[in-house]
């Protein structure tokens, strides 16, 4: 700078630092900002969309029937013809793993929805009617004291192997967890001044539940539902693995692993491939759940 800058410029320079120190930020679109702020959600959701697509379009991705037996082509290693190889009775592992996606996702999503709806109803009931609370919650405690897998095995022993029974058995084991969560949230919410204000405004109890309680339980419920979904997929695989779950006629990841167990030492990929698929699916659901928890927490980004 050659000459003294006029006083007004001097004053401005205090408030406007030179451009070199603070380069102008590139404007970011809302979509890109969301991806950068919530990588968990984006990765989890992308993987999950991919898996759902696999489940839906399995017949388009492989023309092979996953249950077709070909004794002449038993125990083939992965090749151009059999991408994931074949099993002990010559069934195409690639086709079986793709179709297995259907069972895992079906069980995961169904259990998450059923357990959430029933648990929500029980939790609301228990949180609002104090006389019922003690009884209902002791029953829930009783159910929770049984490990969910044992409870599911016991229920499968009574009902027989079918996908529907697997869903029911796992859902029953998961309901108490949701009920407890919802009850806790309801007990906190009903002490909120806005609920007292609504009562003082003459709002009737059903409307208070619908308008003030239910919407505020949705965030923790959604997060819990993703964890239940992930847990249900694992339990389904375990049940199928020990032969107490999905019937062997239907390809599921648990079944495939169970059948590959006998020749694990010579053909490890028969167990490993469905195991990787299961792990990735569970990871995707958990990532989505973690990300949703951060987004739905009102104390997060909004900061009030």
């Amino acid at each position: 700078m050659n000459a003294m800058p006029p006083p007004s410029d001097m004053r401005r320079s205090i408030f406007e630092p030179p451009a070199a120190v603070y380069p102008p930020r590139k404007p970011r679109g809302p979509a890109l900002r969301f991806v950068l702020n919530h990588p968990n959600v984006v990765i989890g959701a992308t993987l999950l969309v991919l898996l759902v697509a696999i489940a839906i379009f399995a017949p388009l991705l492989t023309p092979v029937d996953p249950t077709a037996i070909a004794p002449a082509k038993r125990n083939r290693p992965p090749s151009a013809e059999y991408w994931f190889g074949t099993d002990q009775v010559g069934r195409d592992l690639y086709a079986r793993v793709l179709y297995g996606t259907r069972i895992s996702l079906l069980v995961g999503f169904s259990v998450a929805i059923i357990a959430s709806v029933i648990g929500l109803a029980i939790g609301l009931f228990s949180g609002f009617l104090r006389f019922a609370d003690a009884i209902v919650m002791r029953i829930m405690d009783g159910l929770m004291s049984i490990p969910p897998i044992l409870l599911a095995i016991a229920m499968m022993a009574f009902s027989g192997a079918s996908v529907r029974n697997v869903i029911v058995a796992i859902a029953v084991a998961e309901v108490p967890r949701v009920a407890r969560l919802v009850r806790g949230v309801v007990l906190t919410l009903r002490e909120q001044p806005y609920v007292d204000a609504a009562i003082a405004s003459g709002t009737r109890t059903p409307m208070i539940i619908w308008r003030h309680i239910l919407p505020n339980t949705m965030a923790p419920m959604t997060v819990q539902a993703t964890y239940i979904c992930a847990s249900a997929m694992i339990v389904e695989a375990i049940l199928s693995f020990i032969g107490a779950g999905t019937p062997p006629t239907i390809p599921s990841w648990g079944n495939i692993m169970a059948e590959g167990r006998a020749i694990w030492e010579v053909k490890p990929y028969i167990v490993l491939i469905p195991a990787v698929f299961l792990s990735v699916t569970v990871l995707a659901v958990n990532l989505l759940g973690d990300g949703l928890r951060d987004i739905l927490d009102p104390r997060g980004a909004k900061g009030h």
């Binding site: 909120q192 001044p193 007292d196 003082a200 308008r211 919407p215 505020n216 009030h304």
Partner: peptide, 14 residues
């Protein structure tokens, strides 16, 4: 009618 102390908790955030 009523006016409570905490104007943050007195209003349903949703």
């Amino acid at each position: 009618q009523v006016v409570f102390q905490d104007p943050y908790a007195s209003l349903n955030p949703r």
